[in-house]
Nucleic acid binder design. Structure first.
Length: 457
DNA sequence: CAACAAAGCGCG
DNA sequence: AAAGCGCGCTTTGTTG
């Protein structure tokens, strides 16, 4: 019943989110689309002038095209004789797999032609997937992405026509070109984004009740990612830069939590040091000068970085988060006995699942349910009070609003109260504090800036 | 020709 | 023993 109610109330609240929609700056959208088209055209002409494309055309004639990956692979590996380091999974049509042509698999190729190829692909994606994808769906200046609650196996939400949950942000140029098109609904509104900080880690702590993990997510003076960076790179904690902390978070901690293992983590962490080479010197002073093979089939050699990360991994699960490891093991055994598992939010899953699924689904899904409950309560409160502020999107752990200027203080205070206090009263299984980060924009989404919260609370 | 699969890449 | 999870969109390529 609890899960049913969440889906029921969630469907209604999200239907209103769809109806509200996000305001699009159509003039800016058109201008940006023209710029993307121009850059794509420029790069196409540049690449087609290149002697390499001469060979490409000589081989494929009239069917030659820069966007055909099989042709691109043929040119790289059969004509130019670059080393092929990765192939796709075997299929009936290609028992050996095909050469992979994604950015990572070609990282070892030092070629202007390849770099410009990826730049071209980027502008084509900006143009077709994002700008044209938005334009196709705009009605009267507003975009209304569909909000699904019946798709994801984890009982997360999803979004389509267009997907409102994957607008670019990590690539600064891409993020700017797309997010500048999204603006407050009119001059009386401010765009506001409420983001749960580290919600999946917090939910993991609630499920496994590991005392060290609880302590990390509860004590603001502690910093798990900094500590893991210190351990991975063998640095004192106060010598960990922002960048190294970021690397440890995304190349060790999260992959480990979701079930990755040390050869992948070691390689990724090592390669990230290309941007901070002095750390390699520091590691060398500790006797670590080589990465190691990072082949899952072969035991790592003592003295390599891979061997070191293997030890960090053993310490991570054997000592630091021992209770978390025991929880994972217990959950897998229980799933094998019962053929399914239950969420703290009332949901259940039955069927065939991998070891990782059994723990990850609940963490990912329940984290979303905290956001969904927050959204439902916010929507209810806005309507009871006949407020003019509107919820306009949801991105798994964040909620976007157009907040009316006259309601700004009141809305921010209420949403923060729902997200950090009321949701914990509703769900006592949330045994750790929840924190919300707030950002706002007056011009467009790309220009969002952090809101100082003392001013609101 | 339509339907589907695969590859690649955008987000949390 | 097995070794990140969850989505949606576009283009190319295959199948029948």
């Amino acid at each position: 019943m609890e899960a049913y109610k969440l889906l029921h109330d969630g469907s209604i609240a999200l239907a209103r989110v769809e109806a509200n929609g996000m305001r699009i700056d159509m003039r800016h959208l058109e201008n940006t689309a023209r710029r993307a088209t121009f850059r794509a055209k420029f790069l196409t002409e540049l690449l087609e002038k290149d002697p390499i494309y001469g060979k490409w055309r000589a081989r494929f004639g009239r069917s030659a095209s820069l966007t055909k990956r099989q042709q691109f692979a043929y040119v790289l590996f059969d004509i130019l004789k670059y080393e092929c380091r990765a192939r796709t999974a075997p299929t009936a049509a290609y028992p050996l797999g095909q050469p992979k042509t994604d950015k990572k698999s070609l990282a070892h190729i030092d070629s202007e032609f390849v770099q410009d190829y990826f730049r071209l692909m980027k502008y084509l994606r900006i143009k077709s997937t994002f700008l044209e994808g938005i334009k196709r769906e705009v009605v009267n200046g507003f975009l209304h992405p569909i909000q699904n609650l019946n798709i994801a196996r984890t009982y997360r939400g999803s979004s389509d026509h267009p997907n409102g949950q994957n607008f670019p942000v990590r690539d600064p140029e891409m993020g700017k070109m797309i997010r500048q098109c999204i603006i407050p609904r009119n001059k009386n509104y401010v765009g506001v984004e409420f983001d749960f900080k580290g919600i999946e880690v917090a939910v993991a702590a609630c499920y496994c009740k590991d005392p060290n993990l609880i302590s990390y997510v509860s004590d603001p003076s502690k910093d798990m990612h900094r500590d893991m960076a210190a351990q991975c790179y063998m640095l004192p904690p106060d010598k960990v830069s922002k960048y190294l902390r970021y690397c440890a978070k995304n190349q060790f901690v999260f992959p480990q939590f979701y079930g990755d293992f040390y050869p992948h983590c070691a390689r990724a962490l090592w390669e990230s040091l290309d941007r901070e080479p002095e750390v390699k010197g520091y590691l060398a002073s500790k006797g670590i000068r080589k990465l190691g093979k990072c082949d899952p089939q072969i035991d790592p050699v003592k003295g390599t970085f891979e061997y070191h990360i293997k030890e960090v991994e053993a310490d991570f699960w054997g000592r630091r988060f021992e209770k978390y490891a025991q929880w994972k093991k217990r959950q897998w055994e229980q799933y094998q006995e019962e053929g399914g598992f239950n969420f703290f939010t009332g949901f259940a899953e039955t069927g065939i699942f991998s070891r990782n699924d059994v723990t990850n689904h609940r963490i990912q899904g329940s984290a979303f349910h905290i956001l969904l409950w927050t959204l439902i309560q916010t929507d209810k409160w806005l309507r009871q009070r006949r407020m003019r502020s509107k919820i306009i999107n949801q991105i798994h752990d964040s909620m976007m609003m157009d907040v009316h200027r006259s309601e700004y203080q009141e809305v921010l205070a209420k949403v923060i109260r729902i997200a950090t206090i009321e949701v914990r009263e509703h769900w006592p299984w949330i045994i750790v504090p929840l924190t919300i980060e707030v950002e706002k924009y007056k011009t467009n989404w790309h220009n969002k800036r952090p809101v100082k919260l003392e001013a609101v609370a």
